[in-house]
Design a protein around this nucleic acid. Structure first.
Length: 885
DNA sequence: TATCTCACG
DNA sequence: ACGTACGTGAGATAG
């Protein structure tokens, strides 16, 4: 009996590339997608021992019927993979495995698989396993054909035979087509019958067997269901047809060509080295291949579960501890529960339940040890651990290395900075993802002690294993100083700001909410009246129908799913109908109410009336911080109505004040410094209004001739410059034609020639190096700068221009924060730093320190980093955040 | 969970 | 011809 493995290449490649977080190696290849594919192949070869093997692709193109690829174009959470450039590598990989590949003009992978499985069914001496991510394939199952459907990306498969399909769905394989016919499949653009999901479809099929059966018995159905079935009968028939896999294509391959003879070790080894699959290279030992990885020997780690009786044993080895892991559950460490600690000393890992740390005299020494600065331990995510420990009254100190922070600096766009991901990247022993051990989200569960201690010990061992290689990488990227003198100390500064929190006047906030509520109600009624009907104003879909169908207003632009109703569109429609103004006002007020009144109130601690934001130090690709739970970096200010919210942020003690200090034009000053543009530098050296100065130079007029419109346009150009200018972007912003925008830009560059040179040079440099850096050597890789796709490449070019500017500004304020923290301590001031908003710092200060702080804060901020132009910080204070403007 | 919208620098 | 300004987080809807 022969055994054939048939892989649906398009569906599996789709899952490998899109369902996983994206990792790239040094050549910009998405290694984890390729790695996933590789481990799947290895597993199949080992477990199934196939005699025949084929991977089928859609003909001649990398197309997925799924919509996700298009979404990457506009997505901002992940960098779009240049799949067309990755795909050939995937094919090379398959070739180095010695596996046959097949595509045929005019046919899809489905058709190839459908036809081959039919032939196998007919011949009777060929057993087939079809591997796909697509449940459609289940229709092909038979005595001879089993269908493996991937789960969790592609790391696991579930093998379906007709019996399992019967068990799961109560259907025979052929009825899968009928199932799709009734329920449809959005990802495949199969409509089915609207409103019929899997549950209903199965019920109908159990009763009537096929789509035709259901349709001919439609009169037996009841109510809504009957209407839908009758109305969409044609859609159901067509959907069934679409879901049916074609099984009769003319095949140009013979069985002989599918015979699998195994892979050639050296060939596969070379491929793995190219892809930097270090752990696989080590594990598989390709004889005849050269240059095995330089991985540290795997230490055999002993696990000790510490209980009351064994605390002394642990205390005795504390001086030898080199790595520490503190497991904090949940997304928000301010609410986080610590479930356990793992300490690594030599080749022994000690697991300590956190309850043991919190109470009892025996563990007082352990607490002292956590708090002593006189130690040097490595951790993963010091910031998070420090917050959680602070709430338990323990002040963590003595952290000398943080694997998360190091991973972020080495690649700030990396989304897989999980410890398990870092371990894999550095070829350390595989580590289960936290999700696998704990579950995720609300379903979070603490596993039994044996499993927990084992997992935490694996983690702390991984941390230990990461120290040396990551330090080497930081060193070779010249990010040593950035790491040790800026980011690592900053983690502690952030933790103390967050733990301190900021006081919220909840009574005033509720009062404001009540006023908003009354006004919103009035407006909603006015809108319903004008529209002649009630509808859900918060639904863009319903609003779109009212505006563009009922009221017949002209659609301005479309979104992927329908009419756009955003503020830009509504402003254009405002003259056409009086209701539009009301809707815009409603939007403003509703945002204030839901996000800033209700949302903020949910985050206030009832015991103290404070909110404690959580700054994430390892998210933003440019080096900025981000703020969550609540986000205090987007509190309204531009419109007076929203700005009032700032009145509820007050000092935590009577008689104190809120003091704010913000950098003036920090990004343009940074640009002046790095571009060394003469005119730009001159403007800042002479402390001129930069937008006025730009207007003077671009329009060639005297200062007295610059009107407000010229200044506004100059300001937009300056923003554009910082963002990585494009004529299209500027034209949108200024509402002018693209041609005029292009002329503006050209005029700007004619005057600010140093800026033009910087923009050209930085893009060129990014092309050569593959990355750009900030003044402090923070690095961002831009693999897509070489993409052939215009959009991807243009995006990378703008990023190359913007990141050094935005990133250096981030470096500077971070430096100021660390220095400010030191100064407050050194000068023994009672004032406290509370918030950072990208170019602004917020403090609370006692009355008698206001004058001191008004001098000290700007002084520290302005001298944080010496540039060739002066830095300027404006300071103000008041009874609340609103007054301190 | 994806999409749209909108708040900030 | 391509069709976006750079960087974030959060709330509501809809499927």
């Amino acid at each position: 009996m022969s055994k054939l493995i048939l892989i649906d290449g398009n569906s599996i490649a789709y899952r490998a590339f899109f369902a996983l977080p994206l990792l790239s190696n040094s050549s910009g290849l998405h290694t984890n997608a390729l790695y996933g594919f590789t481990t799947m192949l290895l597993k199949l070869l080992e477990e199934q021992k196939p005699t025949h093997f084929l991977i089928a692709f859609d003909a001649g193109k990398v197309t997925f019927r799924h919509t996700q690829y298009a979404e990457y174009k506009g997505g901002r959470s992940k960098t779009p993979p240049e799949l067309s450039e990755q795909f050939p590598v995937l094919k090379d990989l398959i070739r180095s495995f010695g596996i046959a590949q097949y595509e045929q003009e005019g046919y899809e992978a489905d058709d190839i698989i459908g036809t081959l499985t039919r032939l196998a069914d007919e011949s009777g001496d060929m057993e087939v396993i079809v591997v796909s991510g697509d449940k459609d394939m289940l229709q092909l199952a038979s005595d001879k054909v089993k269908i493996a459907i991937t789960r969790k990306g592609i790391s696991e498969v579930e093998l379906h035979d007709p019996a399992l399909i019967k068990e799961k769905y109560g259907l025979v394989p052929k009825q899968i087509i009928d199932l799709k016919g009734l329920m449809g499949d959005t990802s495949d653009n199969i409509p089915g019958i609207p409103g019929v999901g899997e549950k209903t479809a199965l019920k109908l099929l159990h009763e009537y067997e096929t789509v035709e059966g259901v349709l001919s018995h439609a009169d037996e159905l009841k109510g809504k269901m009957k209407e839908k079935v009758v109305e969409h009968a044609d859609s159901a028939r067509m959907s069934k047809e679409l879901a049916t896999i074609f099984r009769n294509m003319p095949l140009e391959k013979t069985w002989d060509e599918l015979v699998y003879q195994g892979y050639d070790g050296p060939t596969l080894g070379t491929m793995f080295r190219k892809l930097e699959f270090k752990s696989l290279l080590e594990k598989m030992d390709f004889s005849g291949s050269e240059g095995a990885g330089d991985l540290p020997p795997k230490a055999d780690i002993q696990t000790v579960e510490v209980d009351d009786n064994r605390v002394d044993e642990l205390v005795a080895v504390l001086p030898q501890v080199t790595a520490l892991h503190i497991e904090v559950v949940g997304d928000n460490p301010h609410h986080g529960e610590i479930i356990g600690l793992a300490l690594l000393a030599g080749d022994t890992c000690y697991y300590v339940p956190f309850a043991l740390v919190q109470q009892g005299e025996a563990s007082a020494k352990l607490r002292d040890w956590l708090e002593t600065a006189d130690k040097s331990v490595a951790v993963y995510d010091q910031h998070r651990a420090e917050i959680a420990l602070a709430w338990a009254g323990i002040h963590l100190r003595g952290v000398s290395f943080d694997a998360l922070l190091a991973g972020y600096l080495l690649d700030p766009t990396e989304s897989a900075l999980w410890l398990s991901g870092l371990a894999a990247k550095y070829g350390l022993p595989t580590l289960p993802a936290d999700e696998e051990v704990f579950g995720k989200g609300a379903k979070f569960k603490v596993p039994e002690t044996a499993i927990l201690s084992e997992h935490l010990c694996r983690k702390v061992t991984a941390i230990q294993g990461l120290i040396e290689p990551m330090k080497r990488d930081l060193e070779s990227n010249e990010m040593h100083q950035l790491f040790y003198e800026l980011e690592l100390p900053l983690a502690g500064v952030l933790a103390s700001m967050e733990k301190k929190g900021i006081q919220v006047d909840t009574a005033a906030l509720k009062q404001y909410g009540a006023e908003l509520g009354a006004e919103i109600e009035r407006i909603v009624n006015a809108i319903y009246e004008a529209a002649g009907t009630e509808f859900n104003l918060n639904s863009p879909k319903q609003l779109g129908e009212i505006l563009f169908e009922k009221l017949q207003l002209p659609p301005v632009k479309k979104t992927k799913t329908g009419y756009s109703t955003d503020a830009e569109v509504l402003e254009k429609l405002e003259p056409h109908h009086p209701v539009i103004g009301h809707i815009l006002l409603y939007r403003t007020l509703a945002k204030l109410q839901s996000t800033y009144v209700e949302g903020l109130l949910k985050e206030v601690r009832p015991e103290t009336g404070k909110v404690h934001t959580y700054y994430k130090q390892t998210i933003a690709a440019t080096g900025r911080l981000s703020s969550q739970y609540p986000n205090l970096q987007n509190i309204p200010i531009r419109l007076e109505e929203g700005r009032k919210i700032r009145k509820v942020f007050v000092p935590s003690q009577p008689g104190w004040s809120i003091l704010t200090a913000d950098y003036s034009q920090i990004e343009l000053r940074v640009l002046a410094h790095i571009s060394q543009d003469e005119r730009l530098m001159e403007a800042f050296v002479n402390n001129m209004d930069i937008h006025t100065k730009t207007a003077m130079d671009v329009f060639g007029v005297a200062e007295s001739e610059v009107d407000s419109n010229m200044r506004r346009q100059a300001k937009a150009v300056n923003f554009g410059i910082v963002y990585g200018i494009s004529d299209y972007g500027l034209s949108q912003n200024l509402n002018i034609t693209r041609k005029d925008a292009a002329a503006f830009i050209e005029q700007y560059f004619a005057v600010f020639q140093g800026v033009r040179k910087y923009m050209d040079d930085i893009v060129q440099k990014a092309r050569e190096d593959g990355y750009v850096t900030t003044l402090l050597q923070r690095r961002r890789y831009l693999p897509e700068i070489k993409a052939s796709n215009f959009n991807l490449r243009s995006f990378a070019e703008r990023t190359a221009m913007n990141t050094p500017i935005q990133g250096t500004a981030a470096d500077i304020i971070k430096l100021a924060m660390v220095q400010m923290d030191e100064r407050l301590k050194k000068e023994k001031l009672r004032s406290r730093m509370l918030l950072q908003v990208h170019d602004e710092l917020v403090f609370e200060v006692p009355e008698d320190e206001i004058e001191t702080m008004k001098v000290l804060v700007p002084q520290v901020m302005e001298s944080a980093l010496k540039l060739d132009v002066p830095l300027k910080a404006d300071v103000d204070s008041g009874l609340n955040w609103y007054e301190a403007k």
